[in-house]
Design a protein around this nucleic acid. Structure first.
Length: 431
RNA sequence: GUGGGUGUAGCUCAGCUGGCAGAGCACCAGGUUGUGGUCCUGGGGGUCGCGGGUUCGAACCCCGUCACUCACCCCA
């Protein structure tokens, strides 16, 4: 009769052991560098938020079904954040008076959604968010799209591996109301239909459309407009094209950043203009990796000051699936560069001194926690990935010397203890 | 929420018609008391996912349940 608690992490959450953590650190480190290189500043915030901030604008699916909620001892209804955008909008709105707009911010946070785990989807994921607040300019959209492409490049992706599909809700709404002839109040429902366009059989889509009040002629016009690609744009009124940031991008020299796709809708209700999604082009992982867009009213939940925003969230689960599919995952970093191994207990103190010298020279150096047979410690150092070891034995130490051994070749030489770091560096320079 | 697949050692898995719970790798030790990778020898490790049922006897059959996984729905 055993009453041990389970060691597996809670369903849909993950432990990250050192080897995997090392891979993650390397990948995310490159993403941080991209953000920092463009002047984006890192921020952070609480994982717990008032539940209301998601119920207003995130979308029915998330608020009703996927939100982890709880009530605190004061009776406040709280939620684990399912995404970061409402949080950052809150932080921006609350600190607007101290900020110099436009601001460029990024973060790397965990988010929770209660749903059934499967490929590309878990209950706790980590995502990079990058946003620009306080500008309506198309330059903000272009900057965000630039970050996306730079980040993909930084993890080793080339443009043939993925496609950035973009749409604009201004264009979408105009197509629906002015070309197809759908009343304003149905735009949202029909948008949801378009979101499912590629995923459901055509007859199913037609039936759903009929249920939303579209007659056959309207459905045909909608289908034709969606298939027309960029050719539909000249049919739209000038004032619509003027209000659309995406239309402006497509007229500019930043056109290559996006592929116009009228089927991109995205579920978050708060998007107001540009929306985009990055897709893996590999058929083995043919899915949406992440996305973002422009949300010009979200800070309106928190204050009367109008602060438009544009940004994206890049989740780790789909990103790492992408990297794995394309063979872009880096190797875990070894435990240390050099292991300093004393032959007996009484030589551990000198070993610590040599290790300190090595660290001052920039090497990651270890000494054993428990002194074992030399062969055992060499084997351990080998498995830990050390490129060199320094052996501290009584005969050499009596002369003030140590033995430096190259792990790849097995060559070793005895040098004065104070030259150990230099000897290791020589090995590294002349492998 | 719907449907399929899979649960046996740390990992990958085998286990026939129900009859003593196994292999490879990994780990630890010894061969070699100061030298890793190769080799040899030995060793530690198991609620067979969990609960119930059938049976003289269940890893195996039946029922339930949980977990993992894939697809759908939806979504990042």
């Amino acid at each position: 009769m055993s009453d041990y608690l389970p060691t597996a992490p809670y369903r849909g959450t993950r432990d990250f052991l050192p080897a995997e953590m090392s891979v993650r650190q390397q990948v995310f480190g490159r993403l941080y560098e991209v953000a920092e290189s463009r002047g984006f500043l890192r921020y952070d915030g609480p994982v717990l938020e008032s539940a209301e901030i998601y119920e207003a604008k995130s979308g029915r699916e998330i608020a009703d079904l996927q939100l982890y909620t709880l009530t605190d001892r004061g009776g406040r209804r709280l939620a684990l954040r399912p995404e970061m955008t409402p949080s950052v909008a809150r932080i921006i709105a609350g600190n607007a008076s101290t900020l110099q707009f436009p601001v460029r911010w990024y973060c790397h946070v965990n988010c929770h959604r209660y749903e059934r785990p499967q490929r590309g989807r878990v209950r706790e994921h980590w995502q990079i968010n990058a946003d620009i607040f306080g500008s309506d300019s198309v330059n903000a959209d272009i900057e965000i799209l630039g970050v996306v492409h730079d980040m993909m490049a930084a993890v080793g992706a080339t443009r043939d591996m993925y496609v950035l599909r973009a749409n604009d809700r201004v264009l979408l709404e105009a197509i629906l109301t002015r070309i197809v002839g759908i009343p304003e109040e149905r735009v949202r429902d029909v948008s949801g239909l378009i979101d499912r366009w590629e995923k459901a059989p055509r007859d199913q889509v037609r039936a759903d459309a009929a249920e939303l009040g579209l007659d056959d002629a309207q459905f045909d016009r909608l289908e034709a407009a969606l298939k027309a690609g960029e050719d539909v744009l000249p049919e739209l009124p000038a004032d619509v094209l003027e209000r659309s940031n995406l239309a402006a991008i497509m007229r500019s020299d930043a056109k290559d950043l996006v592929t116009y796709d009228p089927l991109i809708v995205r579920a978050f209700e708060y998007y107001t203009s540009t929306v985009f999604e990055v897709f893996d082009r590999d058929p083995a992982n043919n899915r949406s990796l992440f996305g973002g867009g422009r949300y010009d009213d979200l800070t309106g939940l928190f204050s009367g000051q109008r602060i438009p925003g544009v940004g994206f969230g890049m989740g780790d689960v789909t990103l790492f699936d992408f990297l794995g599919t394309h063979g872009l995952l880096p190797e875990p970093r070894p435990e240390a560069d050099v292991a300093v191994i004393p032959v007996s207990d009484d030589l551990l103190a000198p070993a610590r001194g040599v290790a300190t010298d090595l660290r001052k020279a920039g090497w990651r150096a270890t000494t054993p926690i428990e002194v074992r047979k030399l062969g055992k410690e060499i084997a351990r150092a080998d498995k830990a990935g050390a490129r060199a070891i320094v052996i501290i034995g009584p005969a050499e130490w009596a002369e003030g010397n140590v033995t430096v051994r190259d792990m790849a070749s097995g060559d070793q030489r005895t040098v004065p203890a104070e030259s150990a770091a230099r000897a290791v560096s020589d090995l590294a320079d002349h492998p």
